[in-house]
Amino acid sequence: MSDPLIRLTGITKVLKGQQEPRTILDGVDLSVDAGESVAIVGRSGSGKSTLLSVIGLFDRADTGTYELDGVDISRVPERRAAKLRSSHFGFVFQRFFLLKHLTAAQNVAMALVNGQGWLPRRERRARVMEALDLVGIAHLAKNRPARMSGGEQQRVAIARALVRRPRVLLADEPTGALDTETGALVIDALLAATTRGCGLILVTHDRDHAARMGRILDLDAGVLTERVPA
């Protein structure tokens, strides 16, 4: 059997603040295959965002191993981590984090203009338009965020996450700031990526959205458990 796309084994994250150390992630095991979609649900403060930071290489686990395509990347140096973030991961957050001085197309292009793997201008433009088209807002390419609705802005953010053709999409409550209908459109866009072989990990409070994923995992006080389908 081939290796899963990502595999976490015994991941722990301990926060050493002013008070006594607090365990945020407590021996998390998780594996996700290519094209698979996974929902992570749990109470506020249970560690969902922390887990996504570890998976997305924003942050490192204290113990445990993290394999990407069968390669242990738990202790890679920052330079390598930056490269992997660029080549393997796409991120979508509850807040859209668009740069307001750039147009939609420029916001998407910023994932290509990142000092990793240079693409010529023509190819860059083609990729950007392709990504905007995937989320259905190619006609807004020249607009700045201030002139777009929340749902449109979030879809620009998804296009930005997709433009590098990542292996894994990490979405942290991407519908949190959107109404139900718009939220459903955003989930559609994310799920569409899995049909092209991309893994999707979605953190959400919305039962309906969670139900549309292939698997649902519960995170409770740093402990991750698979919800057995009823």
């Binding site: 924003f58 920052e78 330079r79 994932a111």
Partner: peptide, 16 residues
């Protein structure tokens, strides 16, 4: 800060 964090998130190296 947000812009720089975002740029790092999409893979821009610190040194750059």
């Amino acid at each position: 800060i947000e812009e720089f964090a975002l740029r790092r998130a999409v893979g821009t190296p610190r040194m750059l």
